[in-house]
Amino acid sequence: MKLLTFRTEKGWKTGVKTERGVLGIPDSIESIAERGETALRELAAEVERALRAGTQLLPEKELTLGPCVPRPEKILCIGLNYRKHAEESNMPIPEYPILFNKFDNALAGSGEPVPIPREARQVDYEAELAIVIGRTARHVKREEAMDYIFGYCAANDLSARDLQFRTNQWLLGKCCDGFCPLGPYLVTRDEVEDPHALGIRSYVNGELRQNSTTGDMIFRCDELVSYISRYMTLRPGDVILTGTPEGVIMGYPEEKRVWLEDGDEVTVEIDGLGRLTNRLVREA
């Protein structure tokens, strides 16, 4: 099942994508994730009734999409989690997952403009597979960890490199407003046969920049959920960005780096999860 959020006059609303359009539903993404398979069975029955009754559905192209998980308690990110990306960054393969975080101010929906901070001059893209947690997880064994995942979505871990490396803490360059586009869909786990065998790509103004597979991950999804749950409680709706493959601007030779600028359009595409597109707009 593909879930999304969209803007209405009364605020954000949850929708289910169908072949005929989007069916609006009253539940929040987080409550659906928490109720898991029970909620999905109820939603599937609701969608079937609506289609059978000829209920008027919403044309997706006319909707203003929001981040597919609009209110996560935590947004956790994994650095240097693809072998070839670590190599292009001239950094050693990590012995343990490298964790940092973003906040909900960084969330953006597909199609939403993302502001470039006034001081930032080295803005980069990072196509990423994101995990969405479906069950409260604490001290989860690796062999059981996949059962705690509700679904997956595409993410763009936008990064202002000059701010990121201003100090030895990465947070400033990662947490700017809109620097975590998420979506367009939250795709439930049952529709993703193997999250470690997905093509993952990014484009800038239509030009292919990253073209890899999630099979190049150093720490796989089950290992990440298990590892993180040893130190903090993961809750339904929490989001884990699992790292980016090679091909980011920072990995280019210095003389060939052309950083993202005002008007650039960045698209992240992951097999089965859709295309997440945002345009960068320089702050006045």
Rank of each mutant, 00 (worst) to 15 (best):
Y252D: 09
Q56A: 14
D27N: 14
T167E: 13
R275K: 15
G11I: 06
G274Y: 00
I98L: 15
I200A: 07
A86I: 08
D104I: 14
A155E: 10
E283V: 06
L51K: 07
L4Y: 04
P26H: 02
P59M: 11
G247I: 01
D222R: 09
A160M: 07
E261Q: 14
P245C: 08
V204I: 15
V114T: 04
D162T: 08
D216E: 15
P184V: 01
Y125V: 01
L129K: 08
K61T: 11
E60L: 14
L208P: 03
Y203I: 02
E95L: 13
N81F: 07
R41E: 15
T5M: 04
V258Y: 05
A160P: 07
C153E: 02
A120Q: 09
L208I: 12
E128Q: 10
W259H: 10
Q164Y: 03
R230V: 00
L280G: 06
E34F: 03
R201F: 06
L186T: 05
G274K: 00
M1P: 07
I32H: 07
Q210T: 05
F179N: 02
D147G: 15
L23Y: 07
D271V: 01
S31Q: 13
D190W: 06
P97F: 07
D216S: 11
P184I: 02
L260P: 02
T38K: 15
R52S: 15
R282D: 04
H196L: 12
K74W: 07
L76T: 09
D177F: 09
V239C: 10
G151W: 06
N101G: 13
A145R: 06
R166I: 01
W170F: 15
D271M: 11
K141H: 14
D262T: 03
P184H: 02
M232F: 12
E265H: 01
G66H: 04
S28D: 12
R52L: 13
